[in-house]
Design a binder for these strands. Sequence first.
DNA 1: TTGTACGCGTTATCAT
DNA 2: ATGATAACGCGTACAA
Lengths: 348, 348
Amino acid sequence: MTAKSPRRERVTVHDVARAAGVAIGTVSRVVNGAPTVTAEIRQRVERAIAELGWVPSAAAQAMRGAPTRMVGFIFSDIRNPLYSAMIKGAEEVLEQYGYMLVVASSDGQPAREIALMQLFKRRRADGLLFSVEQENNPEVLRCAAGAGYPIVLLEREMAVAQGAVGADHRFGLRHATAHLLALGHRRIAMISGGRHNRVGRDRLAGLRQAHEESGVALDPALLRLDAFTTEYGLRQAQALLDMPDPPTAIIAAGMHLLPGVLQGIRMKGLDVPRDISLVASNDSQLAQLVTPAVDVIRYDGHALGREAALLLLRRMRGEAVPANTRVEVPTEFVLRASSAAPPSRRGG
Amino acid sequence: MTAKSPRRERVTVHDVARAAGVAIGTVSRVVNGAPTVTAEIRQRVERAIAELGWVPSAAAQAMRGAPTRMVGFIFSDIRNPLYSAMIKGAEEVLEQYGYMLVVASSDGQPAREIALMQLFKRRRADGLLFSVEQENNPEVLRCAAGAGYPIVLLEREMAVAQGAVGADHRFGLRHATAHLLALGHRRIAMISGGRHNRVGRDRLAGLRQAHEESGVALDPALLRLDAFTTEYGLRQAQALLDMPDPPTAIIAAGMHLLPGVLQGIRMKGLDVPRDISLVASNDSQLAQLVTPAVDVIRYDGHALGREAALLLLRRMRGEAVPANTRVEVPTEFVLRASSAAPPSRRGG
DNA sequence: TTGTACGCGTTATCAT
DNA sequence: ATGATAACGCGTACAA
């Protein structure tokens, strides 16, 4: 029986039963570990199964109402290492409980998100991990409400979801900003994205809070909050440094922004941290090994995925978890060598 | 009908048929676009479907022998950005053809690979993309042979597979090594992993070939080929630099090795490229932005995933592709600032 | 202890 | 053009 045989006849319980000389019910009892089976019959059946290479059809089981033990994960782009870490964390938890994770990229398009949610419904997924792009898109909200499976959000917030997990970005940004303000910075720029989701809101809130606590005014012209791409980082860094009254510190909040911002600073011929201070989020090997090493706001994507999976498991088991449960994963500020007092301060 | 209703009754064709006042066969004809349906009936049915939010059950369709339009992808660890790129490339192609990609990490354990292959068989996956860990593991080979779906390998080689896609590592290593030899290096070390797969073999072959072509002997003590981890990179870099007759150049072939090797070199207080030359593979933002920027052997993981998906699609369609088809993706050597003539040469 | 028959939701075939 | 019904493979209640 070669693998290339074009006519693959699927082997079923009937084939196994015939080969073992028993009825299909007996085969079923054997595989499901019913105690009422003779050792000898069990042997025969197990040998037949092994010889025929039979595996029970998941489709038929699903039709009988068995859970598919399949969980979906929708996010914008798998190439973001943060998502890779979340996936890994979620996968580790889910596989322990016999679930398999199906990942799907939406490219940040609500239409694709909806198509994927429908697909998971058709496939009878038991649950969904979701890093939705726009938290308020009505079509997405309606689809999520009628999905029929529990949804847990990662780094997002939506009323229709059955729970959410996110890092404490507000605290992280507040801490980093306070650090820069304490060094004497008065013009702190932030480059980031996610206007339409909780991450963006929390980061901005943290930045604002630190300014208010220090009584320093925050210049809106220093906020560049439209994208997470490397190219955006490069262009906005250049634009900021070309201002008549440029910032003395830049916070690059988003994995892919740092390389662009670094390049923009280097093209200007500026030195970090002498001419300009720099803080990034999240941590990365680049931030650690570039010269000078970059201060970062760090959080654990792996833990985020793990927590999300655990929360989803509870929902799938039907446990009575309070509505709008939100799990917070901590952020920490890691001081390296990319921040110093602003030039004017040293000069004066 | 709220989403939190604990008793979710699944809505079926029967419900739709009843709501529209037609027979179930008619509903089926409508959704499958049969031409023999009155416009008025079609309207009624479509409205009922929309109102009830019905989606046909994939399980029931699968039972009728319909393809599941599901493709698996097994690899060791999703956090390797190379795999992320491959997944993205494969996903882009597959979704165009209506397939969904199910990714699963094996952690490099053959037992997990086998379990996952069985799982995909149970789920009746239409095909599998596979970056197998050990190409010669007999259990894995047997399981792959009896899987029942076509398998296309990425960066690997196995007789039982229906095709393979890989980068031309032999050429890349040969090119990089020739470059170092031309600069005058005579002791070139390589840190890498993958002893049991084609990538490792090809890289070693390329290193050997360049040495032979230049008539330079290759010292086996300079080969450290046991792992791809950052920690291994660090330790082996230290060990190499501690040798009485240390290498004057190091090739770090494996995404995660570079940060470790860089750290090892820095801890020794050596300067790149004055004291030691460095070449890495694959390219990364770290290699681009670290000082000095690192020469790399580059190849396109995204293209690799794309090509693998295209080949698998042909197999799944039953096209007569020659057995043992192998698609090669090119590698290129990118010169930056991390290689120079060896110190002895400059000194003498 | 083991065998038989039904139903899950869909599509295809036949009858109307 | 539409309605009724068999079949896909499994699990299980019930009969033997």
